[in-house]
């Protein structure tokens, strides 16, 4: 499965990239699985997801919980709690 992964705010700064296209293994089924898999890619990802409870996720522009299934998704985004307004 190929996914576009986007990172925002301090998650972007810690991973050192704004977006990337990744081929994700079949067994990575949920957003939580994807976070676990990403953290194996290097210390910058370990740092970005060191406190998984404060990292939020969206699938195709919709907020989701970590147990959300990735099947059918094209774009996944990771970011801190929002602070607009």
């Amino acid at each position: 499965m190929t996914l576009k992964i986007r990172y925002f705010a301090w998650v972007r700064e810690q991973t050192g990239r704004a977006e990337e296209d990744l081929v994700v293994p079949e067994e990575v089924a949920s957003v939580g699985d994807l976070i676990a898999w990403l953290t194996t890619r290097g210390p910058e990802f370990e740092a970005a997801f060191a406190r998984p409870e404060v990292v939020r996720a969206a699938l195709d522009h919709v907020h989701v919980a970590p147990d959300a299934a990735l099947a059918g998704a094209r774009e996944v985004a990771f970011f801190p709690p929002v602070t607009g307004g």
Partner: peptide, 14 residues
């Protein structure tokens, strides 16, 4: 509108 956009619209302030 303000209460909801502050907690759901994807903006981040630095």
């Amino acid at each position: 509108l303000m209460d909801y956009l502050k907690t759901s619209a994807p903006f981040w302030k630095k």
